Simulated assay, not measured.
Amino acid sequence: MIDDIGTIRRQFTAHETLDGRIDQAFEAMKQIGFEALIYDYTPVPYDLDGAIMIPSLLKLRNIADDMHDYWFDRGYFRIDPVQQVALRSTAPFFWNYDTDADTLINRFMSDDTAPVARYLNERDMSTGVTVPVHMPGGDYATVTGIRFGGNSEFERHALRYIADFNLLAHVFHETAYSLFDKKALSVGTVRLTERERECLRHSAEGFSAKEISRIIGRSVPTVVMHLNAAAKKLGARNRTQAVVRATHYRLLEERPAD
C-alpha cells in the first residue's frame, strides 16, 4: 500500500517545478510495478464538431520522444481508444491492445484506430492502467502507467494495485495542476491575444464596440480590429459566433499570470 494522502501530497509539493512533480509521480508509480508514465491534460475535451481535442500538455517518462509527434502532429490522440474510454469514465481501468483481450477499449478498436495499436505494440506498450481525472470546469487529464511486455500476470498485479494508483494519480494531478501556466491551460489550436480576449469578454457581456472602446480606452476602429481578428482565428462568421466559440474553448476565462 502507498502512503496516506497527506504524505503523498508533501512528497509532490516538495518539488517546485512541474517536471519535478512528474518525476516524483513516476518514482512512486515504479514502486507499484509500472515502468513508464504518460500524463496529459486537455482544457476542452471536444471541439465544436464533437472530435476529441489534442491535449495542451503531454508529459512522458521512459517513453520514446516520438510519441509527441504521433499523438500531437499526427493526431493519434484523437483516435486513441484509451482516450475514448477515459472521456466516458471516472474510474481507473486496465487496457490491453491485444485484439483477443477483453478490456474496455475493445469496443472502440477498429481499422481507424489500428495505427495507435500498431505504434504501441511495436514499442511493447500494449498494456497499462489509465486514471481519468475530470475537473469541474470540464477540463480533464489522464495519468497512465505502463508495464513493458505486460501479460496476464501483469493484469492481475495492476488490478491489485489499481486503487493505490488511482489515489496517487489524483493527488499528483492536483499538485501538478497548481503549476500549470497559461499555455497549458489554453486550447492549443486557437491563440488569442490578451486584448482580443478582453474585447470578446466585453462583447459577451453585451457591450457594443463603441462602449468597449470607452471601457478599455482605445478607439472604436481598434476595438473592431481586435474583434474581427478574434473572429477570424475562431473561424466565426460574426461577433456572436465568435463569443460562442471562444466560450466553448474557455478562452474568455481569466488565466493565471505566467
Rank of each mutant, 00 (worst) to 15 (best):
F77I: 06
F77V: 07
I79T: 10
P81H: 13
V82W: 11
Q83P: 07
V85I: 08
A86D: 00
L87N: 06
F93C: 03
F94Q: 05
W95E: 02
W95R: 04
Y97I: 01
Y97P: 01
D100K: 02
A101P: 00
N106F: 12
R107S: 12
M109S: 11
D111L: 15
A114P: 01
V116C: 07
V116I: 09
Y119E: 12
E122K: 11
T127I: 08
P132M: 06
H134P: 05
M135V: 03
P136W: 00
G137T: 05
G138A: 00
G138R: 01
D139C: 03
Y140D: 08
T142D: 04
T144W: 03
T144G: 01
F148N: 00
F154K: 04
F154C: 05
E155D: 03
R160N: 13
R160E: 14
A163N: 08
L167I: 12
L167R: 13
L168E: 07
L168H: 09
L168R: 06
F172N: 13
T175I: 09
A176G: 06
S178G: 14
S178H: 14
L179A: 08
D181W: 12
D181R: 15
D181F: 13
A184K: 08
L185A: 02
S186V: 04
R191P: 00
R191E: 07
R195H: 12
E196N: 02
